[in-house]
Simulated assay, not measured.
Amino acid sequence: MDKTPLTESGAEALRAELKRLKQTERPRIVAAIEEARAHGDLKENAEYHAAKEEQGFNEDRIADLERKIASAQIINVVQAGEQAGDRIVFGATVQLADENSGDEFAYQIVGEDEADIKSGLLSFATPIARALIGKSEGDVVDVDVPGGQRTLEILAVKYV
């Protein structure tokens, strides 16, 4: 089984979601199924069918999270930074400037399961992250993205 990289905070978020699904959602859904059963005829019982469907989704997500956690390679970002020196590797927080628009922004390069572009968490598998990995502060990279080509200057690299 291939290992999937995750930051420590990303792994913790997956563990917290798994715990919530098992300890809070699962008992709530079971109670809803029992209550719906008490209403009688299950063939035409919409509450029962909705609760059973929700139970299926919940159990699928639990299995998915357990698989992801089991196959995770948890990366300590600070240690990765110490080993990388001044190069960008998984876990780096990179301050960038778009040379075309002049916009400045920062991304942390993370695992696919923890990526959230609105929060500045960029999957290592994206074109931008792939172009940045191995580069250093001061480098300029050209990246082909769905919106066209972007020229990005690396302003700073941190591991926190």
Rank of each mutant, 00 (worst) to 15 (best):
D2W: 10
P5D: 01
L6A: 14
T7V: 03
E8Q: 14
G10I: 07
G10M: 04
A11N: 13
A16E: 12
E17W: 10
R20W: 11
K22A: 04
K22Y: 01
Q23G: 11
T24N: 13
T24H: 12
R26T: 15
P27S: 09
R28M: 12
R28F: 08
V30L: 15
A31T: 12
E34Y: 13
E35N: 14
A36S: 13
R37V: 11
A38G: 12
H39T: 13
D41T: 09
K43G: 10
E47M: 15
Y48G: 10
H49Q: 14
A51P: 08
E53H: 14
D60M: 14
I62L: 08
L65C: 06
L65T: 07
R67I: 08
K68L: 15
I69V: 08
I75S: 05
N76T: 08
G81W: 05
E82S: 08
D86T: 11
R87C: 00
A92Q: 01
Q95V: 06
N100V: 04
S101V: 04
G102N: 00
G102V: 02
D103Y: 04
D103W: 02
E104V: 03
G111T: 02
G120Y: 02
S123L: 02
S123Y: 08
F124C: 04
A125K: 13
A125N: 10
A125Y: 07
A125M: 06
P127T: 04
L132W: 00
K135S: 09
E137I: 01
D139A: 03
V143Y: 02
D144Y: 03
D144H: 07
V145E: 11
P146S: 08
G148L: 06
R150I: 15
T151W: 01
Y159L: 12
